[in-house]
Amino acid sequence: AEVTLRVHHFLPGVAPMQTRFFDVWAQEISEASGGAIEMQMFPSMQLGGKPPQLADQARQGICDIAWTLPVYTPDRFPVAETMAMPFMVTNAEKTSVAMHTLMEEFGQNEYKGMKPLAFHTHDGGKIHTRGQIVSSAEDIKGLKLRAPNQATGEMLALMGAETVFFPVTEMVVGLSNGVIDGCCLPYEVVPAFKLQELTKVTNEPEAGGRGIYANTFALVMNERKYEGLSDDLRAVIDAHSGADLSRRLGAQFDEFEAFGKSVVEKQGNEIHTIAASEIDTWREMAAPIYDTWIGKLNDAGHDGAAIVARANALLDAG
């Protein structure tokens, strides 16, 4: 191969993200370039560092392409983080498309030294518990819940939950021995942690409305490496990135979500639906979180209110 690109991310090599997306995508790029571009995969942070450093690693050339979560570096990529606020996500595909548009309109300067290839989210998180059914905010009061990120943790705390911020390894043991009552995560990660065996009930928001939360992701490439490619090869990368790739990644995560849900169903766990109207009242409770967020965007030199309004408009337009 003429060019070797090192791809670095934090998920294990057996994860569907590696086997169903990265491997396939690398193969497509290799074929489209007539074998000129070879992608070397480094899952599980094999090139060192921790997940929060992935974006910097791509910028500095420690790797060439990194798959990263903006929430891991709070406030560094505020526009890219916007969709990770509570009650934004609709489904992964639609939210990913909306995020891509939002980044094109407002976030052009966020990934300096990097060439963004795609932006996307996973599907909305569900509340998995050891047995508690959640129908209303009242049911959340006093529940010991593991929060997936800071904003969602704040939201759960506002609703009266006793939030904990365990690392996932602690979360798994905590769920099995009852240190915590539940966690808020999408179905997609259920197989990875065998959550279906650790929980009995999954409380999911009614389909079609807003979900509880979703993390945002960015797939970025080292800018010098990108600029240094020949015109032909750059065209290959261009053809395999951008809005289409964002949509594709979103759709892929909707598939992962469906598979995760089937695992929970197969286990015979109870799946309880939280009414969309109930979620709307929760969303009103989260108003202070949106206000804080707008302030944060303003501090970063953006028009915060405009960004949040645009994000909501894109999501509502579907």
Partner: peptide
């Protein structure tokens, strides 16, 4: 190991 191979840690 459990995280890498999607196994149940407690088991």
């Amino acid at each position: 190991y459990a995280l890498l191979t999607e196994q149940n840690i407690v088991k």
